Structure formats: structure tokens, C-alpha cells
Amino acid sequence: MTDPNSDKTAANEGQRLQWREGDMPYSEAFGDHFYCQSDGRLECGHVFLGGNGLPERWADGGPFLIGELGFGTGLNFCETWRQWKTARRADGRLHFMSFELFPMKAEEISRALSRWPEIDAERQTLVAAWPAEPGSIVSLELDPQTRLTVACGKALDGVMNAAAGFDAWYLDGFAPSRNAEMWSVELMQAVFGRTKDNGSFATYAAAGFVRRNLISAGFAVERRKGFAGKREMLCGTRPPRS
């Protein structure tokens, strides 16, 4: 329950939020903002959609499965859904599956996303469908061509329990220096093992150990220009099986 006399609210057990600059959530548990302070929506487009070659890859139609480490506010999903609606073919089907340890409340998601009028329709639909008390799995059919699944709990457990067949990954945990578990070699290996041949990943992170863990897992990794003055980001693909 939100305390009207405080600008802090308990997101859930084990996680507390601060609200900075009005509607920008900050995690006390990880000591980090949930998205880029300059413009998280534009960062999503540059890093996650651009780094995975989207929406161009949707031109082939058919099913497309995106995995995300860290659902957070739902910003990446809403921006992806917005772009998906403009680019999808009639036979296209998007399944966006995210892994989140501390799911937010609907009102917190709404507050965090209210700063972007571009995704207002997606925000409202997501918030209206979001359960009051998320269980271990949140599964939402948001339109006839779009499904959202959020597996609540540790990312490694969730990914290990997921079926293979991911076309693209958004690696978007809190900063590696603050949440190294989300960038571990074990988790990167699990992500790799569930990625299709020629499937891709993208991340804002460029720390040396993150790059090494991705390469060790089996990905072909490349550096690209980062967003908003950040020197580098990483993206790459799973090479075809011989």
C-alpha cells in the first residue's frame, strides 16, 4: 500500500522503490535506476530492438519469441509491443517472455511508464490486465497477436525451466557491478542453450566479464556504439549448429 506521506513504497517483499524526479523508479535493493535517466524508451529502441535487428526481422511473419532478463517497469515490453503493432504481418505472433525477481504492482508500473505518451495505449492495456498479486507466472493475451509471460523468481531458475526456441534476447538486468548474478556465466549458458540457431541478444552492458561470459557460453559477440554517450554496448548471435 502506498504511504501518502512518503515518496517510497514497498514494491514487494525484499524490494523497495524510491521515486526520483517525480516518476523515475530507483531500486534500493540494487542501488540503481530501472532505466536510462536520459530516455529509457529511446534506449530500448537503440539497444534492444536495434541490437536484435528488430523490427526488420518481423517481416518474415510467423511466431517470434523474445526473452528478457529483468521485466522491471515493463518499459521494454511496451515499446516493443508498440513497434510490433506497426510492423507485424497478418500471420505474425509475438510471445514476449520475461524473467523478474521482484514484480512491481500495477500502480507502480503505471506511474513509472506515465512519462512516455508514445506508449500510453500499451501502458493502459498492460496495467488493466496486470494481476493484483502476481504469482509465479503472469500470462497475458494482450491482443490476438501478442502474448506476455513474466516468470517471477530467480532468472536462472526461470530460464532453466523455459523451453528452447528463443529468437532474440534482451539482457537488461541491473548494472553488472550491482547485480552480478544476472550476468553470470551459468545464466548466459542457460540463455545460449535456449536460443535458436542464428538467434540474437543485445544488452546495454559492455563490462569485460559480461562479454567474456557471453563468449564462453558460445555466442558470437560484437561491440556497437552505446546509447546517449555510452561508449559501447554488446550484441551478438548464436552460430548455427554444425
Rank of each mutant, 00 (worst) to 15 (best):
P144F: 01
D197M: 04
I137W: 13
P176L: 05
V191I: 15
A202M: 08
A207Y: 03
G158I: 00
L187S: 00
S177R: 13
A151Y: 13
D143A: 12
F209E: 07
Y204H: 07
F192G: 05
M188H: 11
V185H: 11
F201K: 00
S136V: 09
L148R: 03
P134H: 09
T195S: 08
Q189S: 15
D167Y: 06
Q145S: 15
S200K: 12
V191L: 12
I137L: 15
N198C: 12
A164R: 11
Q145N: 14
A164K: 12
L171Q: 11
M188Q: 10
M182L: 15
A163C: 09
V150A: 02
D172G: 02
W169A: 02
I137G: 07
A207D: 12
Y170A: 04
A207N: 09
C152K: 04
A162W: 01
A190M: 08
L156V: 11
A175K: 09
S139W: 08
P134L: 12
C152S: 04
L187F: 10
D143I: 03
A175W: 00
V210G: 03
F209V: 06
E186R: 14
S200G: 08
K154R: 14
G135L: 07
V159D: 02
A206Q: 01
S136G: 13
T203R: 05
E181I: 10
A205S: 12
K196H: 09
L140Y: 05
T146R: 01
T195F: 10
R147G: 05
V138Q: 05
G165N: 08
E141I: 14
A207V: 01
N198A: 13
D197C: 07
K154N: 13
R211L: 05
D157A: 14
A190N: 04
D197F: 03
T203N: 07
Y204S: 04
L171E: 06
V210A: 02
K196C: 12
V159N: 00
R147L: 09
A202F: 07
Q145P: 06
M182P: 08
